[in-house]
Nucleic acid binder design. Structure first.
Length: 724
DNA sequence: GCCGGAAGTT
DNA sequence: AACTTCCGGC
């Protein structure tokens, strides 16, 4: 679409869809189910049980009631709800566990892949319940699923954050009964916010950012984002920094997570991989978000597209994360490399930096922060991380099972440069390139110019507008948004200058390619084929086997599930280790910076970077129904700001919240979202550096922060959005 | 309880 | 498209 095209970037069409298509926007039942599953509060009503992805509706009437409340369908009942669930059978989103009453099983393959590519299933280790979907393992990794819907978003986020704490009270209240009103939502929100809300959220951010928490943090995102935007758009991806909270059990920073229940599936969420990513901590699920669209064969999965359904965010960081996640997921799931296609442009360099040492994460964070400010400083830190990451990746630390999947082999690698290639020393750059390897055009690095970009290659499909293909675009958007135009529109790359921001080039990609990418994505769905091709069966999770289908188990499920399961099984089973190389990049701050850095090639010469953008952003924040692009821009801007000056952040925070509040008020019902949200964790999580175990780990403080912020923002938006 | 067709709604 | 509603059948 051009959509934005004009502006220049272009995301694949699907990306925009969400907004466009009404259907996709609203919360989907499966999303809702996942939300409930992840919340402890609802464990009496619905909980993970059994095999991966399997859950039991303990209180059908209640679930129906909640669903009805969410959808403002007071007449909802289990019969109807179950009919809706049955429709998922064909979509393969889930299937019935035969022989067990009220028991269904998510087909994560589709869900995950599609919507949440990120998820790393890594080992879950202890915490994960069997049924829980793939959770990331260790503390670090977990990911949570992104809220697809705005509402979801929120809820999850909040959930994440506030476990028992702040929100919980409110949330709970709301959650169950009260939540439901369609009309009221607002009030609820307000309550929450008032009560905790503001703080809570902030905390989260702070936590993220600072770990320690200073207040400063940033609320900026929110402000930026505006709920409205969200309509759908927000981000789906999260990438947030991990939530500390996430691991209930394990972690501790927050410590308090509630406990995980055995039932609860995942302590963590599936998200992605980004190391820190797990922002959301909650246990969640894997499945995630499929978008409506997605399920199917889908298309585009991975990356963005899926998200689409609801919204996804384009934030640079998000993108990075997303990519990262995606990468991981690819590996993990054994997806085909193609998946990466979506982001063909992106090259991930690995920066190998000598590790500096910051012993503790905190230190790192601090560094990161500095770096951000400074521009380059952080990187050092990052690098350090990276290396480690890289190692891990290579080593395959995580996965026990994993075979190894090496990414290397995949074509993807090239583009990504995962681990192996040593990037140039310079600060890392993220380069967004067009298609992988020489795909079309550019082998060389010629940079296309804006005009050339798109047209050149072929703009075929998407393109036009953008050359971006994928990711890039957002950059441009951002820039534009900001006004600063850092990236100028479209396609050119800019280099950041100074400080060392990472440079990212965004080259216009041929559209065509992008589309192709899309195809890739599908993997999840269809894929059995693909999987095979690419993968990784190795990955399958052992657990799965045990329980499952194949084996037989007594449960009937196995068989009848058959077709579905096949797919499913594959998916779930194999958690994969995070990709080596990838992680590093993504993981770290780089990403952040990178994002910031992103440039379109043509771009402006100077740095437009952050500074400008930042400046711009402020005003912007508000938008309501803003096009995605704008949103991004705004977000972007803020991000930059934030990064740029944390100091400022404090001030900003204030505003943002205010803004948020406003926005929320405007919205209507909160209900579930809140409910869900309520559960949230506390934020606290923020984290500590927790352990990020996995490769990802590295997480950088900054990264986390950002993500955290994003999450919050998302959450807010989602809350706001819920409209009944 | 569960299934799935058919029609209607958003 | 994604349910919601209704319903007959197993």
């Amino acid at each position: 679409m051009k959509t934005p095209g004009d502006t220049g970037f272009a995301f694949p069409e699907w990306a925009y869809k969400p907004e466009s298509s009404p259907g996709s926007r609203q919360i989907q039942l499966w999303h809702f189910i996942l939300e409930l599953l992840r919340k402890e509060e609802y464990h009496d009503v619905i909980a993970w049980q059994g095999d991966y992805g399997e859950f039991v509706i303990k209180d059908p009437d209640e679930v129906a009631r909640l669903w009805g409340a969410r959808k403002c369908k007071p007449q909802m009942n289990y019969d109807k709800l179950s009919r809706a669930l049955r429709y998922y059978y064909n979509k393969r989103i889930l299937h019935k566990t035969k022989g067990k009453r009220f028991t269904y099983k998510f087909n994560f393959n589709k869900l995950v892949l599609v919507n949440y590519p990120f998820i790393d299933m890594g080992s879950t280790g202890s915490s994960v319940p069997q049924s829980a979907p793939p959770v990331p393992t260790g503390a670090g990794t977990h990911f949570r699923f992104p809220p697809s819907t705005p509402s979801e978003v929120l809820s999850p986020n909040e959930d994440l954050r506030s476990p028992g704490g702040m929100f919980s009270t409110v949330a709970r209240r709301m959650a169950r009964g009260s939540v439901s009103d369609c009309s009221d939502g607002t009030s609820v929100n307000s309550e929450i916010e008032e009560g905790n809300g503001g703080t809570g959220e902030e905390r989260g951010e702070r936590g993220v950012s600072g770990g320690g928490g200073g207040p400063g943090g940033g609320g900026s995102y929110r402000s930026i984002i505006h709920p409205r935007l969200s309509h759908e758009a927000l981000f789906r991806m999260y990438g947030g920094p991990g939530n500390p909270a996430a691991h209930p059990g394990s972690r501790g920073p927050a410590g308090h997570r509630i406990h995980q229940e055995p039932l609860s599936p995942f302590p963590v969420s599936p998200l992605p991989g980004p190391p820190g990513a797990s922002l959301l901590a909650p246990p969640l699920s894997p499945a995630l978000s499929m978008t409506p669209t997605s399920h199917l064969p889908y298309t585009p999965s991975p990356t963005l597209s899926p998200m689409l359904g609801s919204h996804f965010s384009f934030n640079p960081e998000d993108m990075k994360r997303y990519l990262q996640a995606h990468t991981q997921s690819v590996y993990n799931y054994g997806l085909s490399p193609r998946a990466f296609l979506q982001y063909p442009n992106i090259v991930i360099p690995q920066p190998h930096r000598p590790a500096t040492d910051k012993a503790s994460l905190n230190a790192e964070r601090a560094a990161a922060d500095r770096a951000e400010r400074a521009g380059g400083g952080e990187r050092a830190g990052d690098r350090h991380h990276h290396p480690s990451l890289a190692h891990s990746a290579h080593h395959h630390p995580q996965p026990p099972h994993s075979a190894h999947s090496h990414p290397h082999s995949h074509p993807i690698h090239h583009p990504l440069h995962l681990g192996e290639e040593p990037p140039h020393m310079s600060p890392f750059k993220f380069k967004l390139q067009p298609p992988p390897l020489g795909r079309k055009q550019r082998e060389g690095q010629s940079k296309p110019r804006q005009s050339s970009l798109s047209s050149g290659s072929g703009s075929g499909s998407m393109s036009s507008t953008s050359g971006l293909g994928s990711s890039l675009s957002f950059g441009s958007d951002l820039s534009s948004a900001s006004g600063s135009g850092v990236i100028s529109a479209s396609s050119s790359t800019q280099s950041l200058n100074s400080a060392g921001l990472p440079k990212i080039k965004v080259e216009p990609i041929s559209d065509i390619e992008s589309e192709e990418e899309v195809e890739v994505t599908d993997i999840s769905d269809e894929d059995p084929d693909e999987r095979e091709n690419f993968s990784p069966r190795h990955f399958r999770v052992s657990n799965h086997h045990h329980h499952n289908n194949h084996l037989s188990n007594g449960t009937a499920t196995a068989q009848h599930q058959s077709h579905d399961e096949d797919l499913d099984e594959d998916v779930f089973k194999a958690p994969a280790p995070p990709p080596p190389g990838l992680m590093p990049f993504f993981t770290s701050h780089h990403a952040h910076r990178g994002l910031t850095a992103l440039k379109s090639e043509p771009v402006e010469p100077g740095e437009s970077n952050a500074s400008q953008s930042q400046a711009v952003s402020p005003g912007a924040t508000q938008g309501k129904c803003i096009p995605l692009k704008l949103r991004f821009k705004r977000r972007w801007s803020e991000d930059q700001r934030m990064e740029a000056s944390q100091e400022e952040s404090d001030d900003k925070k204030v505003r943002p919240e205010e803004e948020r509040d406003k926005a929320r008020q405007t919205n209507g019902c909160v209900e579930m979202g809140e409910d869900l949200a309520g559960s949230g964790e506390g934020d606290g999580d923020s984290p500590p550096p927790l352990a990020y175990e996995g490769s990802l780990t590295v997480p950088l403080a900054s990264h986390r922060r950002v993500s955290a912020e994003l999450h919050r923002a998302t959450a807010q938006l989602s809350l706001e959005n819920k409209d009944c």
